[in-house]
Amino acid sequence: MKLSFNSVKASFVATASALALVACGAPADGDTEDAMADGTTAAAEEPGTIVAVAQGNDDFSTLVTAVTAAELGETLSGEGPFTVFAPTNAAFAKLPEGTLESLTAPEGKEQLTGILTYHVVSGATDAATLTSAIESNNGSFEITTVNGGALTASIVDGNVVLTDAAGGTSTVTATDVKASNGIIHAIDTVVMPG
Rank of each mutant, 00 (worst) to 15 (best):
K2W: 09
L3R: 00
F5D: 05
N6W: 00
K9E: 00
F12V: 01
L19D: 02
L19W: 01
L19K: 05
V22A: 14
V22T: 11
G25T: 01
P27R: 13
P27V: 15
P27D: 14
G30V: 00
D31Y: 07
D31C: 09
D31M: 05
A35S: 11
A37N: 02
G39W: 04
T40R: 14
T40F: 08
T41W: 12
A42E: 14
E45T: 14
E45F: 08
G48Q: 15
G48S: 10
T49Y: 10
A52W: 02
A54G: 00
D58E: 07
S61I: 05
L63K: 02
V64W: 07
A66P: 14
A66H: 10
V67D: 13
T68G: 11
E71P: 00
E74F: 00
T75I: 09
S77H: 06
S77F: 02
G78P: 09
G80Y: 15
F82H: 07
T83N: 05
V84Q: 02
V84E: 12
F85V: 08
P87G: 03
T88W: 00
A91G: 03
A91W: 01
A91M: 03
F92D: 00
F92M: 06
A93Q: 09
K94M: 06
L95A: 13
E97Q: 13
E97Y: 06
T104I: 07
L116A: 09
L116C: 08
H119T: 00
V120D: 00
V121S: 01
S122H: 03
T125E: 14
T125R: 09
A128Y: 02
L130P: 01
L130G: 05
L130H: 01
L130N: 08
I134E: 05
E135I: 06
E135R: 15
S136R: 10
N137K: 04
G139F: 01
G139K: 09
F141L: 06
F141R: 02
E142Q: 13
E142W: 02
I143W: 03
T144V: 08
T145I: 01
V146R: 13
V146G: 01
G148N: 02
G149H: 02
I155V: 15
V156M: 09
D157G: 15
G158V: 07
N159Y: 04
N159I: 04
N159V: 11
N159K: 15
L162N: 05
D164W: 14
D164A: 12
A165C: 06
A165I: 01
A165F: 00
A165P: 08
G167D: 05
G168R: 09
T169F: 08
T171P: 06
V172N: 06
T173G: 06
D176T: 14
K178W: 08
I187Q: 05
D188E: 13
M192F: 13
